[in-house]
Write a protein that binds this DNA or RNA. Sequence first.
DNA 1: AAATTATACAACCGCCGCATT
DNA 2: CAATGCGGCGGTTGTATAATT
Length: 247
Amino acid sequence: MEGPSVSVRKGAWTEEEDILLKKCIEKYGAGEWHLVSARAGLNRCRKSCRLRWLNYLSPNIRRGVFTNDEVDLIIRLHKLLGNRWSLIAGRLAGRTANDVKNYYNTHLLKKNVDRSLDLDPRLNPSDPKLNIKVIKPRPQILSKKSFPICSNEYMKINTTAAAASSTSTPASDNFLNENGEIMWWENLMMNEDETDYQLQQGLTDDIDLSVSGEQTANEKLEVIEEDNCDSLGELYLDDELWNLVNP
DNA sequence: AAATTATACAACCGCCGCATT
DNA sequence: CAATGCGGCGGTTGTATAATT
């Protein structure tokens, strides 16, 4: 199906190839990757071209060392989302999923395991009373009052911004304020203790997310809010809701 | 200084979901 | 409904460079 019919070039990209690809994207825009190699005069497969652009050549990419804030955010988002690198990268302006994945695997993977055991004595797996088991990352409960995703204002801002932004990595700047800071970061920080507690206590009972009929994301969220938040004061961020509030 | 080992990261591979035919 | 092709994703590998012996 997707195998190349003729041999295509593999391995590291040359400067000449980069220039050809850049000129092609400048002329035709990013997309239609199956046509790019022909348009650019490259003997590369569509995936190679796409990857080279998204991970290296795109002007939106920010290179250089990860800041402390970025590293903290990666750690916390990974805790929330697991290995969903594109989602994580989507919250780090200018960083690609590949960059984040590489950074995590090389810098944080071992450190993270060590740290999680060091920081929280309750998670010491050597303690037989705790019966620690490895669990997959799971959706989070976030307090409505301190995580303002429920507000219509928030939805208005972000659904509009999302509609105008590209869907692929690197991230849009939807979540940056005028100072280039990540807007929801503080909220995430504030909620960490709460969500950790709730996860440990298993307080993640499903909340009804069913919404009938065709509705906009904003309308859907309002219905979900109405059905659940008023009585419970919480939102259950499963995939559907997460996608709604992080378009 | 040379050999070996560890690290960082660019790139590839296989799979998936979705749209189209 | 099945086949096909596409964009996209995460896991993994290959290799250049740095650090260590």
